[in-house]
């Protein structure tokens, strides 16, 4: 299976006889460049706006190079007394960190059970796992909210963390199961002969060998929790519990009292996107792997 955008081209669906090749190649590069421009220019636009003075934002045609370059916009965006971004950042880290850990632990354990253990009802339950992938979250939205109310968890971080320790979601279970099935079964037998328990097998043999699956799951889990909006929107009410997504919403709602201060808003948005972009540049391979596992093997 091809796993990376960096892998060599195996099957160029080559167009045209050799005569037209040069022309079509040139056309291809022009098209690619144009597309790349359109895909990248929003980022440039965001950076440019984020560094501009308020007055220069409302200029048309826009000036692409900010003069002067106002790094202070980042400071200003994060020091509004009604939007404590330090706290939002901390809350987001806490939620994302603990939820990712929970999701990895429980999904890998469950995936391990489906992939490496033989037990009554396993295949039926796995069908249910797959079926829950098709269930839209809206169906359980209201009852789960009521459940959280009964537990007294409204306006706390718990509803955004605890559920992920219980199974971690069908996609992640599926991902771990698919990966763990590729690990040779002889390893289990060897361990069993050594008299090792099931949990030991999971923790000491299978999990350490599941590095790529863990990395892929960690990335997708991180993205999901970092960018989550509807969860925090529903469960978090006090500003002191807000995440970055809700913090951006505050800035959007109050920025300059009716006058949108786009430079500050773009600075804050850029900041929120940054960890995701950095993660992408350092672990591109796993991003692709996750999508492809989901898309082609699924």
């Amino acid at each position: 299976m091809a796993t990376g955008i960096n892998t060599a081209v195996r099957n160029p669906a080559s167009f045209g006889p050799r005569a037209g090749r040069l022309l079509s190649q040139t056309g291809l590069y022009v098209l690619l460049s144009l597309g790349a421009f359109l895909f990248l220019v929003p980022f440039a636009w965001m950076v440019s706006t984020a560094l501009k003075e308020a007055g220069d934002v409302m200029k048309f045609p826009p000036e692409w190079i900010p003069q002067p370059v106002l790094w202070g916009n980042f400071v200003e965006a994060f020091t509004q007394d009604y939007a404590p971004f330090g706290i939002f950042f901390k809350n987001t880290i806490v939620i994302t960190g603990t939820a990712v850990i929970g999701q990895l632990l429980s999904a890998s354990l469950v995936g391990f059970s489906f992939a490496r253990l033989r037990w009554w009802g396993r295949d039926y339950l796995f069908l249910i796992v797959l079926a829950t992938m098709m269930l839209p979250y809206q169906v359980t939205l209201v009852p789960v909210f009521v459940l959280m109310k009964v537990l007294g968890w409204i306006d706390s971080l718990l509803p955004l963390i605890v559920p992920f320790y219980l199974g971690g979601g069908a996609f992640y279970i599926f991902l771990f199961r698919q990966f763990m099935m590729t690990i040779p079964l002889e390893l289990d037998d060897a361990a069993r002969i050594d008299g090792c328990g099931t949990l030991w097998l999971y923790a000491r043999i299978i999990l350490p060998l599941s590095g790529p699956a863990l990395a892929t799951a960690a990335i997708f889990s991180f993205l999901a929790h970092w960018n989550d909006f509807i969860g925090p929107l529903i469960y978090l009410n006090s500003v002191s519990n807000y995440t970055l997504s809700l913090g951006l919403r505050i800035l959007q709602g109050y920025g300059g009292y009716g006058i949108q201060r786009w430079n500050l808003l773009m600075a804050a948005s850029l900041f929120v996107m940054m960890p995701v972009l950095l993660l992408f540049f350092f672990s591109q391979k796993y991003f692709i792997q996750g999508i492809v596992t989901y898309g082609v093997k699924g």
Partner: peptide
Amino acid sequence: VSVEAPSDYWTKVQTSIAGGAGP
């Protein structure tokens, strides 16, 4: 005493009170 200005204020006040919490 803590003072806050939440976004989507009226929705937040209402759901948090109905959810048993709130300011």
